[in-house]
Amino acid sequence: MRTVTASSALRAVPASGGASGRLEFARVSKHFGPDSVEALQGIDLACHPGEFVVVVGPSGCGKSTLLAIAAGMTAASEGTVSLDGRVIRTPGPDRTMVFQEHALFPWLTAAQNVGFGLQMTGVPRTEREDRVTAALRMVRLQNAAAKLPHELSGGMRQRVAIARALVMEPAVLLMDEPFSALDAQTRTLLHAQLQELWCAARKTVLFVTHSVGEAVRLADRIVVLHTNPGRIRREVQVPLPHPRNFDSRDISDIVALVRGEIADEVNRVNAELDADLV
């Protein structure tokens, strides 16, 4: 039932142009200032078209920086990120992002927020209205079209942000801990909705979170990052079919596996800190 609603809404959105959505990091490093520890070191990562990749790691491991580089908002110190073979240098509507804190324009209504990018890129008014309506219906907010962001709940705001990102028909959707500020119930609801949207649209998604549970629910592949310097520690495939039953045994097994990886990592960092103190 849910899937039907989402896919029919998505069909109202015209299909995206040629972009296939292969996002590739090649030897990407980032350091802030000459003497500082590298936030990211030699990251090699390829997100395949239509793949849902989730990056997890302890806080401060540079996972948000990774996303900012892919978005073109931060420049890599070394290496390149490319989308379908073209090197990324600036932000653009082919790589839209959902931020951790909702970054909706507070003076625009939900509908105007969703339509903003279409307006900026010169989409004609009638087409714009159709696409905005479809996108809002997709996140089930058609009744909140005229509301201002501060009149919406946190979960609704993030759904508007998702609609605003998806309406641009990006080749890649970037998500920077989009649900971390929400309560657990709302988060589960949004996980289900995101699954459903992704099943219908099959966009490449690069998703960053510190929550292993969230990663296993959503990902095709989980990338575990190291801290100090930020390096890829391990990649875990999640071979479960979508849409997933979040309460299944398989999910909790994989969660335990990935948690172990991160625990090792946290222990290693703590041990290093202790050694420094001695």
């Binding site: 908002m73 932000p91 509507p93 839209t96 992002m97 970054a103 903003f116 990018g117 900026m120």
Partner: peptide, 9 residues
């Protein structure tokens, strides 16, 4: 940043 991402120049 959001505006740049959405194509405002």
């Amino acid at each position: 940043q959001a505006a740049l991402m959405l194509g405002a120049r």
